[in-house]
Design a protein around this nucleic acid. Structure first.
Length: 187
DNA sequence: GACCGGATTATG
DNA sequence: ATAATCCGGTCA
């Protein structure tokens, strides 16, 4: 079933973890594109120097300060879109970036990266601020058991000082479709 | 109004 | 290792 507002109105890391194994769905007319989420990243608050809310509620980051359960989609490097879901209480800026999904029926192209999955699922900045509890893009729970989760540092945020080291990237540890392979476990 | 650099990807 | 490519944020 479709995730409701209460799901998103929780601590960002909790949401980022719970989203692994859920299904991202984009309905275009009678057509439906979906993918199983296998990789996410949490961006948490103005203190987090990797989070777009670090400069406060600017025009771009304003949606992060709004109510949970809305989409935040931004353009990166002039050519790729990144899809996030706003979480935590209104007024507390935080979001979960969806970094990889396992493609479902109807999805063409690779989905093992934030830019790639947006391209394959036809998600773009046109969906920014969309309410995921009422719109034509949503996330649903299909009642599957929770996957085994692994946590790693976030990707591409080396500029964020101590915040770059936080293990806020969550993945389905058994998935073969991550944006990067997990390092071998020590021992 | 100019300048800087990025939550990426494809290619060499 | 590096190019592609554009917008947001900063500082003037």
């Amino acid at each position: 079933m479709k995730l409701r507002r209460a799901f998103y109105a929780r601590p960002c890391l909790e949401v980022a973890t719970a989203l692994i194994g859920k299904y991202l769905v984009h309905r275009i007319g009678r057509r439906q594109l979906c993918g199983r989420i296998v990789e996410t990243e949490a961006y948490i608050g103005q203190e987090d120097q990797a989070c777009h809310a670090r400069f406060g509620a600017t025009k771009r980051a304003r949606v992060l300060f709004g109510p949970p359960g809305h989409a935040y989609v931004f353009l990166i490097y002039g050519m790729y879109d990144c899809f996030n879901v706003v979480c935590e209480a209104e007024g507390r800026p935080a979001a979960v970036l969806v970094r990889a999904v396992e493609p479902g029926p109807g999805v063409e192209g690779k989905t093992d990266g934030p830019g790639k999955l947006c391209r394959a699922m036809h998600l773009s900045r046109a969906h920014n601020q969309l309410d995921l509890t009422t719109g034509h893009v949503w996330i649903e729970d299909r009642g599957e058991p929770a996957p085994r989760i692994a946590a790693t540092p976030r990707i591409g945020v080396d500029y964020a000082g101590e915040w770059a080291d936080k293990p806020w990237r969550l993945v389905d540890a058994t998935s073969t479709r991550l944006s990067r392979k997990l390092s071998a476990a020590p021992g």
